[in-house]
Nucleic acid binder design. Structure first.
Lengths: 332, 332
DNA sequence: CTGAAAGCGCTAACAT
DNA sequence: ATGTTAGCGCTTTCAG
């Protein structure tokens, strides 16, 4: 193994200087820095993480749990977190929890065993108590939804407000029979917030909600099934001209079901989603959705978990009004 | 932070003794061991990984790259590797490569930055040269397919032989027009091996291959599309009574397409897959497949990457003859 | 069976 | 701007 000392000898400098170069300490003459860099290159020196960690007390690794890795909203967010961490010279270890409390707990334990500097979570099944237990052991930041009453730092948009905005958009485009397509009351918090935003917005506009259609979960398949139910009700004469889906994936499934039932989106039924996943941008028709500033969420989550002072409490979002509600095709 | 010294003081023993207890050194009196354990418990002592690593030179972490995590064959295998490693007290960091060489390289770099004790890979796009580069930097074991001409330790079944066995099963159940459904020649090695096994078996039985149908990739969607092509050919009068699919996922998609086209499996067309993923066991009809001993693959891969002496070179497999080729329903 | 002590490779306080 | 040095927490040789 090549050590700092070897590099120092090769470059004809002190060990301290090598450390300075490696850690980016400013006061090193250009000439010396280059000599050191060359020696590092020639020797193939790689700093020993264990030694760094022992010395600094930081492992340079953060942990991340998401329900699904590499797919949909959390997949995109996860990649951004990994990128953001990498940009700060941090490694990221990721675990996929599938949203069940049990798996969330076992995966967290696995991650904690690696003694990361902090963990970013998108818990779906964990209780406030579980979270308190974890945050007693390491730095924690939550993304995606606020845990009511939890003191843990949380990075999220205002889900209810965003849901309200998109419902308002539907109303203003002349829709009058707007259904919510999501999970039931006993669902993750974000689902409830989005549903509440939907209900409150309708109330503000003096419009009665259409009987809700329940999705089992948040996959496209669930959206498809629920969309099929919706189509059947329409065929039976129910009034319906718009659907607000709890996530883009559900919306994409629902659009497919409506299409299969011979309905046109948005001519017969407008469809809106939430999260702005890439699949929605390339769906046919392109999906109207709420677009949270994911990069900013990732940035703040990493900052939060490193104990950096809080930025803004709330993350920005904007409406992406696309073909599935407007009928207007725009380039992706 | 609670250190070994704290525990030693609390238990009224030397530091060495604490270390002995923690590392499972045998010669510690039962009495002392219990005192130490109690002190550890009371103080909430957790050994510092960085210090351990610095001392022993081992990080206690292995890395794993798979094309997809948590889904299908590699998902199941990945979970088994994680389990196997955990049983040995090792952590596992996993990266998903999606099978492209580019992603494989970036993900490997990310993992290597964590300085794991070794890496287990299922490379799909890497060249032998890439692999040599990685194995120069750390212990490497390959799973899933043999890289021809690579000296790197590989854990795999005999893909060609297994493919031959399953084709022989099809022939012996009276099928005469057997198609291969997989990728083209310019495909990952395992695809080529399975295809070759198929061709050689047919030749042995004196049966001409049916014009191959090409799948774009190894997803169920690809299988569905290819299956639809097959169904169309059949409708046009082509001779076909069996399909051997390169993977279970492709087979499941193909079965769905055949079903949608009004064909019965296995009455009209028998379908066989490869890998024995759980979805196949619950598919309708249940899928005949080659079942590699995944647990053993995981075990040997972990052993190999830790530099333990080689076990058996070749992993066992067996044929799972199920409804999709036999017509006989058996409990899953 | 247990204690003393060396030292893994690195960073940072201190000195120059 | 660069050199000297202590010590992070642990495992392990060497003595007892």
């Amino acid at each position: 193994m090549v050590t700092q000392m070897d590099v120092a000898r090769r470059a004809g400098v002190g060990r301290r200087t090598v450390s300075n170069v490696v850690t980016g300490f400013p006061y090193v003459s250009k000439d010396v820095r280059e000599r050191v860099l060359r020696a590092i290159e020639e020797l193939g020196y790689v700093p020993n993480r264990a030694a760094q960690q022992l010395r600094t007390g930081r492992s340079g690794v953060i942990a991340l749990t998401v329900p699904e890795v590499g797919v949909g909203y959390f997949g995109e967010l996860g990649n951004l977190v990994v990128e953001e961490a990498a940009a700060r010279g941090l490694g990221t270890v990721v675990a996929q929890t599938r949203g069940s409390r049990e798996r969330e707990i076992t995966e967290i334990e696995r991650l904690l065993a690696l003694q990361p500097d902090g963990v970013i979570m998108s818990p779906l099944g964990l209780t406030a108590e579980d979270l308190a237990g974890v945050s007693a052991r390491t730095e924690v930041a939550l993304i995606g939804e606020h845990f009511v009453g939890s003191p843990i730092r949380t990075i999220a948009i205002d889900n209810a407000a965003a849901a309200g905005d998109i419902v308002t958009h539907l109303v203003q485009s002349g829709r009058e029979h707007i259904a919510f397509l999501g999970m039931s009351a006993a669902s993750p918090n974000f689902n409830q917030l989005r549903r509440r935003g939907y209900l409150e917005a309708l109330e503000r506009h003096g419009i009665a909600p259409v009987a809700a259609v329940e999705a089992r979960d948040f996959t496209s398949a669930d959206g498809y099934d629920a969309g099929a139910v919706l189509a059947a009700r329409l065929a039976e004469g129910a009034q319906l001209d718009a659907v607000f889906c709890v996530t883009d994936e559900v919306a994409i499934g629902a659009m497919r079901a409506l299409h299969d039932a011979g309905l046109r989106v948005p001519d017969d039924v407008a469809v809106a989603g939430f999260d702005d996943i890439v699949e929605g941008r390339y769906a046919n028709p392109r999906l109207t959705t709420v677009s949270p500033d994911k990069r900013e969420i990732a940035r703040q989550a990493v900052a939060a978990v490193l104990g950096e002072p809080a930025d803004d409490a709330q993350i920005a979002y904007r409406l992406e009004l696309r073909e599935s509600t407007t009928g207007i095709v725009q380039p992706a």
